[in-house]
């Protein structure tokens, strides 16, 4: 019985890394994980804001950079890390496939890895050209035509795609009926 997924459901599945059906059990677990992540985020925001306010009294510029980097590290590595560990612990992110469909699932993972490699490489390449322009005034066309930058982001894309493929492969669970 296939139920048409709403846009909200697709967003939830994407953020929590859930490949299959977002059924009532998965929704319940995701809701609990999301609540815990929210509590962690609010606690972090309150504490970090207080600390930054105290630091900024004497060291305003340092406070700014500390705030920027901690706001990158805490949500991305801290809270996303918790969500990743929690979903994996509950096996919500597992891709269960029948034994006879395992080869097809691996092929899909390879295609996905290649897609991610291309997406990451191109996005970061374009993003770098814009950030270089803001930081040191380098014209985007110079970055976009730089062989060094092109090679760098091709290699970075390949590495990212490979890591995503390996992660996806670990998520595939062969199931014999």
């Amino acid at each position: 019985m296939k139920v048409k997924e709403t846009f909200g459901t697709k967003i939830l599945k994407h953020f929590y890394g859930i490949p299959g059906v977002l059924d009532e059990h998965a929704r319940q677990e995701v809701s609990q994980i999301g609540s815990n992540a929210y509590l962690m985020l609010v606690s972090y925001l309150l504490i970090s804001t207080l600390i930054i306010l105290l630091i900024s009294i004497r060291h305003l510029e340092n406070a700014f950079w500390i705030l920027v980097f901690s706001n990158l590290i805490a949500p991305i590595y801290g809270i996303n890390g918790y969500v990743l560990v929690a979903t994996n612990r509950l096996h919500l992110a597992d891709k269960e496939v029948r034994a006879q469909n395992y080869a097809d699932a691996v092929k899909k993972s390879v295609k996905r890895g290649i897609g991610m490699a291309v997406y990451f490489g191109i996005t970061m390449f374009l993003f770098t050209s814009i950030t270089n322009w803001f930081i040191d005034g380098t014209q985007p066309i110079r970055t976009l035509t730089s062989i060094h930058e092109i090679v760098k982001w091709i290699l970075a894309g390949l590495l990212f795609g490979l890591l995503m493929f390996i992660y996806d492969l670990f998520r595939i669970k062969k199931f014999r009926e």
């Binding site: 139920v3 059906v21 059924d23 009532e24 059990h25 998965a26 096996h91 269960e96 199931f175």
Partner: peptide
Amino acid sequence: FSLAEKVGVARQT
């Protein structure tokens, strides 16, 4: 697996 597909939930459920 088959029951899960017919009902519309995950096998794990």
